[in-house]
Amino acid sequence: MSDGVSKDRVFKPSTDLVVRDIEGQVILVPLSAGVGDLEAELFSLNETGKAVWERLDGHKSVADIIAELQAEYEDPEGEIEGHVEGLLAEFSKRRMVVDVAAQV
C-alpha cells in the first residue's frame, strides 16, 4: 500500500476548501490557511483527479472507488489502483480531504 492509504479508508472533501465547477472544470479553492500546503490560489483537477474527487462522498471506501473506476474504464495496464491511491495520498497530504474515521 503506497503512502499509507489503505483500501478500507473512507475520505470526504475537506470543508476547508470550496469546490467550484466552472465550465465543467473542477476548481478547488482553499478556504482556511494551510489547505493545499502551497501558497497557491487555485487547484484544478485533471480527468483522473475529477473522477476520484466526484466519488469522495464520505461513504465509499478507497476499495469501492477503485472497483467503480475499474468497472467504468478499461484498465489493461492495471493502473487505476495506483492512480487512486496516489491521488488520495496527495489530497490527504494537502489537507484537501479528511478521513471519516479520524473524525469520529
Partner: peptide, 9 residues
C-alpha cells in the same frame, strides 16, 4: 502532480 495542478485565473 499528475492529478492536481496549481493554477491561476
Amino acid at each position: 502532480s499528475r492529478y492536481v495542478t496549481v493554477t491561476e485565473l
